[in-house]
Amino acid sequence: MAETKAVKEEHSSCIDSLARNPLYVGLAIGILAALVQVLLISAGGPEAYGFCVACHTRDVVNDGVNAVAGTKLALAAISQNAILPMMTVVGVLIGAFASARYYTEFKTKTGSTKSYVWYLLGGLLFMIFALFMGGCPYRMGLRIGYGDVVALIGLVAIVAGVFVGIKIATAIAEREG
């Protein structure tokens, strides 16, 4: 135990304090998403596609389903043209797992069966709506930076949705409270 603590303290260093600040993380994601576009855009569009959790997940899954089942499910041109689709979300899964292990923050958290069903349904619906909008909140951010007004409208709607969600959740909590 003492050893892991020492490891932890050693790495609460300069780089880690930067990595723990969402401000720098956001800046890094935005700038690097532009770098991804300047590097890879020759493989195909769309633009402002450097980072999107919804779309890139869709690309990986649909490409896999197409390969296995011989279907023609739609995915972004860049993922269609490349030897493998955009692997960003796979990277996030591995990177976050490695980080959680390294900093001894990995902990299995379970829930009720009912909560699993809600999260499964929630993820399914979230994905469908995100794809109708053309991306998750992160791609909305990239598209706003790229000069897309509809993405800005989408973001305002997301904020409205968050606001309504909070109001309903607090109302329910108070009634049961």
Binding site: N21, A43, F51, M87, G91
Partner: peptide
């Protein structure tokens, strides 16, 4: 580029995963 797409995006994702885990980043 068609060869680099999975490699570059995987590396980018690894970095975001690490940063996201450290910062609790969430829109």
């Amino acid at each position: 580029a068609i060869i680099a797409v999975p490699i570059v995006t995987l590396l980018f994702g690894l970095l975001i995963g690490w940063l996201g885990q450290r910062s609790g980043f969430c829109s």
